[in-house]
Nucleic acid binder design. Structure first.
Lengths: 361, 361
DNA sequence: ATGAAAGCGCTAACAG
DNA sequence: CTGTTAGCGCTTTCAT
């Protein structure tokens, strides 16, 4: 592993010059540039990331915080992981997967190693101590999902209100006037205020009232068994139900068979739309279900972009967490705060692939 | 952010002493130890990971290589990500998610930054250029899954032969004598020799012959539609089929309805066992299916442990990739080669949670 | 048991 | 446009 010093010697230039051509940080005459490049090639030189990080105080590593609880994470989390890693890689960054509990200790521990230039948080709750800690510590971060208090928090999230509108529009356009909402049942879990559920429920109530439709809201437990139970409850509380919006896509098989118990066939008698799901999940049942696809991949990519933009911008200015007085108050107030809500994409069962999600700004 | 120098000053000792107490690398008298600890507490000192990495030539960062192709990755990949990250974190390491194409360029690029002490590879193919490159580069790594040529490759994989035995045992114990195998259809993908499929198919053929059973093998495309088509083909080529082993768990709904088309109900007329799947996937259909749960989480944890063990062992000895003569030949031949096959755990539909997987050694 | 000092490989002023 | 030089914060012999 050749060092810069060796390259410099071989090219007959100073080590600084080599650094400049490696980083493009300053212009170098064609001849010298050529000699340096050649020397690097002959020696098989590659930049030592660690040394660079130490000297420049930027590691080009970002962390993705995920809840170590794990059980609730599904296919869209996987997409987020992969897309965040891929986008980061494209932008010249590394993505570290960092498990967090519900305490903010993990966050403090994480920041203290000074290994990360910035952080991405996922599965944020309406009240999230990780976000609070990050804010307090002044470490640059972007939230995927959002708390209920988002004045100064950069976030990328799904637009649940819009998704509910789309779902109800679709159902109403099919002629349905009596619509059920199936939410996840958090009984027995430590989860209190889960943003997606809370926002969806509120949007649903509001929109149903505005539209003058009949409705019922039920919750569903895990898997098919949970879905069947939910179907029973739904049919009981709203006997003339013909449309369903469902926010839990691992219970679809059960929903179908639960509805079938009372003679209701999907989609003949009841239309179902899976909220914040995926075409694949919709296609898992027979017949396939219509879905509003969660923009998980886009969220991840956008979040990485927003974070990296902020980091690369801050490169010229003062480094973030100053050890003192006014970290995070006025200094970076000028930096624009990314706050994006991404829409779901409707995929009607049986039709071909959905159009790509538009990029919000 | 206090530095070691500041701590040393405050404790009235040398910087070296501070380093010793921080790393426990040498014994320090109780009094001094105390003073240093206090100083660290008062200053809120935390070790700078980057500086440590530069000086010690060990970053304590490992990379997890995953195929950027992404589409085929499912729930078990998610478990691998999370568990690898969690175990790494427990062992004091960081886990970077690194997307790779099918070329080995990515691997060479990755090694050259000297950011990683070691590497984990997942979704390895029977012939995998990433593994070859890693071997050649001499970077410590552990493979999750295995190529067809594994003399010197440390790996952790699922025991497909054993899984097929378990599945057939189960089916046979239920009285079935005519059994179908459903594999993934790779037509239209660049995948040639996919280990899981190839190993399962071979084990199936062998075992079926030994047991003297009737059988048929079909492939299934994506989702419910693919599963239904597979069911049709299966029924056609093996009309008296009463048992099915299935290696593709996103097509289960379709398999059921496909079988139903010809009047065969699951589980009344046909028993289905999902291979290398999960209880959750089995519970997605109504009624639930029996599964042989893939040990994805255990694989990830074991792989991390094996890799870290190797790294921590090599700490005393010579650093891996020497720049010269005999890197990787005799030097570390003494280090034991981890090669583990983990069994699936049978979860019979309707029963309670499966027993935890035993740890192979 | 503790300290002094020489780097690890690179970046980024500051000179020239 | 190019070179000099002083660190970045820590680990690690080698003395003491």
């Amino acid at each position: 592993m050749a060092t810069m010093r060796e390259v410099a010697a071989r090219a007959g230039v100073s080590i600084a010059t080599v650094s400049f051509v490696v980083n493009g940080s300053r212009s170098v005459s064609a001849g010298v540039h050529r000699r340096v490049t050649d020397a690097m090639g002959e020696l098989g030189y590659t930049n030592n990331v660690v040394a660079r990080a130490l000297a420049s105080k930027r590691t080009r590593i970002i962390a993705l915080l995920f809840p170590a609880l794990e059980q609730r994470l599904g296919g869209i989390a996987l997409h987020m992981f992969m897309n965040a890693a891929t986008r980061a890689s494209e932008l010249g960054y590394h993505l570290v997967l960092w498990p967090t509990g519900q305490t903010d200790d993990d966050v403090r521990e994480l920041v203290s190693g000074r290994l990360f230039d910035g952080v991405l948080v996922m599965e944020v709750q309406l009240r999230d101590s990780r976000v609070e800690a990050l804010l307090e510590l002044g470490l640059p971060f972007v939230s995927m999902g959002r708390t209920s208090q988002n004045d100064r928090v950069p976030y990328v999230d799904m637009d649940f209100e819009e998704a509910v509108e789309q779902g109800l529009d679709h159902l109403q356009s099919l002629g349905h006037r009596s619509i059920g909402l199936v939410l996840e049942d958090f009984a027995g879990t430590p989860i209190v205020g889960y943003g997606p559920t809370a926002r969806t429920e509120e949007a649903f109530r509001t929109s149903i009232a505005r539209r003058g439709l009949r409705s019922a809201i039920v919750t569903s437990g895990q898997s098919a068994a949970g879905g069947r139970q939910a179907a029973r409850e739904l049919v009981e509380s709203l006997p003339d139900v013909t449309g369903v919006l469902m926010l839990k896509d691992d219970a679809t098989g059960g929903l179908q068979s639960g509805l079938a118990e009372s003679g209701r066939e999907v989609p003949r008698d009841v239309s179902v739309v899976l909220l914040a799901s995926s075409t694949a999940a919709g296609a898992a049942t027979e017949p396939a279900m219509t879905t509003l696809n969660a923009p998980g991949a886009e969220m991840a990519r956008l979040a990485v972009e927003a974070l990296v933009a902020r980091l690369d911008a801050g490169a010229g200015a003062a480094g973030a967490a100053g050890d003192g007085t006014d970290a995070g108050t006025g200094a970076d107030a000028a930096a624009e705060l990314t706050q994006v809500l991404l829409p779901c994409v409707l995929h009607v069962a049986g039709s071909s692939a959905p159009a790509p999600a538009p990029r919000a700004s």
